[in-house]
Design a protein around this nucleic acid. Structure first.
Lengths: 347, 347
DNA sequence: GTGAAAGCGCTAACAA
DNA sequence: TTGTTAGCGCTTTCAC
């Protein structure tokens, strides 16, 4: 059972394929009777014109770029996606979004599909796990297919637009230290995401540059979802010795921070009286929550716009452009979940 | 300045295009020296092989379907998207998501682009505004391009999978009436979305089937975002006569309900003591908010799976399948934002 | 108003 | 190992 082509339609309709083509393209040069007849045959045969072949000639149809997210429900990349879309649209491109669900094979398949399907270039939030697989990226490079990464990937020279996670987390810890905190934890993110690694790095860095001593127990493996924050929060604080309060927690992201706060609320632990909390991302809900979440504000607009800009510039250039590596700074915004500690245990 | 083709590469490299093709496809039959040389030429010319042409022969590359959302940040469709993706993946399809931003022209362009770019079919959350434009849908039908709508569109016979908004909203109002409420408002959604229209319809319907009288003032034009709920909430209740409490509000969606609650909190109006609130959608945050939101739970999983299932069945069928029109029921889940009113003003 | 034929850029036999 | 050639399914002149 092979695919129906324009030839099949032409043959069974008893016309030439040129006429069929004219019907498909809604050209007015074709007789109403003939058109009706051909349309009927098309319907009967369930003929689906192959888009690829149609546009092999003129490439006047619209332009598009792709975005490969890691998870569809990651608020960080969702916010970036919105900004990418805005900028892309402003330059006449439609954005197609797909998600690798943190799976390498998916990332590769999607990239291939974009490249094969007339999508002009792609922005990738790369999957980084133990065995870094970057063959497909090299393949894209060979094809001179324009792409921009949203995180640095070891081993390949490519356009990157990312944020300075190390500095952001480090700043958050320093802020807490400056406010008298001495007992500071990190609820860290999903394994193998470079954001997770970098944020832990920043967390440690702040310790090494302070009078506080770092210890592995200070990093609690958590995740990236609300329920992760909630569950790990309950587990950690259920039998927690309340004499150890006040403490402070830097969370992987806002959603985790919110989940954690929900857990604390349930355990009747007060924020920020007992526990100060800092999130990361600054999603919309963060400022609307009560208490309003102190967090690290990501320059989403800059991040998305810059990535899309580099990509589209590359697409529209007739020669290879120099590779760019842009790292954007975040900044802390303090709201109601952090407080100054007067009598720290050291005093 | 015309596009570089494989011929240009072959010519300047002094080889045949067959050899260039072999390099592009990483075939091992080509001499290392030659490969290096050709790769260099490809880079120099910034040659980007045209995906469409490459796959004109065998169609062994992956399969994909498209989803046209109305807004990227609409939590309703975001949740549906997740389910569509799951099901699509289970059948070997990759999902590409694009957003029309409630613009007709965009919806049309995106649909065209999907059809032209080897995406096998599309699920559409249609833009419905005053002047219903459905030419492009007819065009898709002519091309026998498989598609499924997530809302009914007047004037075209097509596959539809939607939810019963009228019944859901009506049920919510009846629930409130059964719990003694006599003063019930609706914070309605964005103009021209069929969800908005249907929910208002359901709201009115419940009144007409009760002892309460409907009045236009009972419907407050709001929107679909957190800030809409917040702003309209502040505006409505800033100078509200508190003697009129208790009242109840059925909101367009959960995010609006949350925004409204935030406004009430700020105005020191208590939920559910003064105001009972029912949302719509049952997004994850709804149950985690404090107080936990009573809402109308959408069968996201069913909705997404069914839409994707119909689409893919159509794609994989060699003949046209009968058109389906599926309407799914939602159901109320009561949490902490609604209460029974004992002494209503009528008592 | 319709048909015939020459491509679009590439792949894949097969020949050399 | 490389070149030659015949298409892939469609569009688009240009005759008729």
């Amino acid at each position: 059972m092979k695919k129906i082509t324009i030839n099949d339609v032409a043959k069974t309709a008893g016309v030439s394929k040129g006429t069929v083509s004219a019907v498909i393209n809604s050209r007015s040069t074709v007789n109403a009777k003939t058109r009706e007849h051909i349309l009927r045959v098309m319907k009967n045969l369930n003929y689906q014109p192959l888009g690829q072949a149609r546009n092999l000639r003129g490439q006047k149809i619209g332009k598009s770029i792709g975005l490969i997210m890691r998870e569809l429900d990651n608020p960080f990349y969702a916010a970036v996606a919105v900004e990418i879309k805005k900028y892309a649209n402003s330059r006449g491109y439609i954005l197609f979004i797909a998600s690798s669900e943190s799976d390498h094979q998916n990332e590769e398949n999607i990239a291939q599909l974009f490249a094969a399907n007339n999508v002009k270039g792609v922005i990738i939030a790369p999957v980084i796990n133990g065995t870094v697989e970057i063959e497909h990226l090299f393949h894209l490079k060979m094809l001179n297919y324009p792409f921009v990464m949203l995180e640095e990937v070891q081993g390949i020279l490519a356009n990157v637009v990312s944020i300075n996670n190390v500095k952001a987390t480090s700043d958050a810890v320093k802020f807490l230290i400056d406010n008298g905190h001495t007992h500071i934890l990190h609820f860290s993110g999903p394994k193998f995401a470079s954001h997770t690694v970098e944020r832990i790095k920043g967390f440690r860095k702040a310790f090494s540059e302070s009078h506080l001593a770092f210890h592995d127990d200070l990093v609690v493996c958590c995740g990236s979802h609300f329920h992760d924050g909630f569950e790990k929060g309950v587990a950690y604080f259920k039998n927690f010795d309340r004499k150890k309060f006040p403490i402070a927690i830097v969370c992987y992201n806002d959603v985790v921070a919110l989940g954690l706060m929900s857990a604390l609320h349930q355990l009747n632990i007060k924020v920020p009286e007992h526990v100060s909390i800092i999130g990361n991302d600054d999603i919309e809900f963060a400022r609307h929550w009560s208490p309003a979440l102190s967090t690290i504000s990501t320059p989403f607009e800059k991040l998305g716009r810059k990535a899309a800009e580099i990509l589209i510039n590359n697409i529209e250039s007739d020669r290879a452009l120099p590779i760019e590596n842009i790292i954007l700074d975040s900044k802390i915004v303090t709201r109601e979940t952090t407080r100054k500690v007067q009598g720290s245990r050291e005093t």
